[in-house]
């Protein structure tokens, strides 16, 4: 993971995190929106402009890759670099959560 990736994606936006999380399975844009809505009980609704921007940027940076097009929808999947970045974020969030719990006690 080079400095650019680290700077841009660690930490990443909430939207970015959910996109990577979803793309552990191959998926198109709108199914990411639906899945995130379900995962968060409707709390987080990803907007198409944000989604499109994130997907193109992540594809350019090699975190995800375009697989194929189906019914005018582009299907993407996470890459090994994406998995690495996601793992970093998961660890960061886990630490955040642990710290929060400890401070409450």
């Amino acid at each position: 993971m080079d400095a650019h990736i680290r700077k841009v994606y660690v930490p990443m936006t909430e939207t970015g995190f959910y996109i990577l999380l979803c793309l552990q399975q191959e998926m198109h844009g709108y199914s990411i929106v639906q899945k995130v809505r379900d995962l968060t009980d409707g709390e987080i609704l990803i907007s198409p402009g944000t989604l499109y921007g994130s997907l193109s940027k992540m594809e350019k940076d090699g975190l995800i890759r375009f697989i194929r097009e189906e019914e005018k929808r582009k299907i993407y999947e996470i890459t090994s670099l994406g998995i690495e970045v996601l793992q970093k974020e998961k660890e960061r969030i886990a630490r955040l959560y642990r710290t929060m719990q400890e401070e409450q006690e």
Binding site: T13, T15, G49, G53
Partner: peptide, 9 residues
Amino acid sequence: EEIFCDEAS
């Protein structure tokens, strides 16, 4: 709803 949902985008 807006087409951008965070300040970063």
